[in-house]
Amino acid sequence: MVDHGDLFWKLLEPEYIRGMMFCRKLTGSRDEGDDLYQDTLVLAFTKFPELKDRGAFRAWFYRILINKFKSTIRRPWWKRRLPMTSTIEAQMIGANPVDRHTAKRWLERAFRAVSEEEKTLVTLFEMEGWNVRELAGLYETSEAVIKTRLFRARRKMKQALIKFSNKAGLKKPGMTVKKKG
């Protein structure tokens, strides 16, 4: 058991910070992200003796993390915290998304258009630097399927942004295209 413990932390070391950052981005909050990370670590540590192929540690660990996230968001208290109030939306309108806090809220708004499964995939790809091949390994599917899922999620998020901008009646900074004439 002691050996298992040492080995677990040794294998986790290169992913320790990245895993925590991923949790914070997934939940959109430092505290909730750290809670999710703690739960994931406890579960992974307990299950570690069952992992036969130590070379597959990274994908195995992220699979536990993603499943933990999915079970967390199914809990009633999480569902109650999700809806973005109209007050927050009103504050977002006119706020400049180049500031990180506002950008997070805009992004949270766009993420509401996709499933939680798609959100984890997009977060890993766009914000955590995973490539399509690594994602195919993580989700145990082909690269073409990952590309399809990413493309679809991105389209849904773009449509959500367009809708929200129209509703807000504004053009966001950086949302301009030169037109002829």
Partner: peptide
């Protein structure tokens, strides 16, 4: 716009 959000919020 979406790419900028990923970069800034990410």
């Amino acid at each position: 716009a979406l790419q900028k959000l990923f970069t800034t919020a990410g």
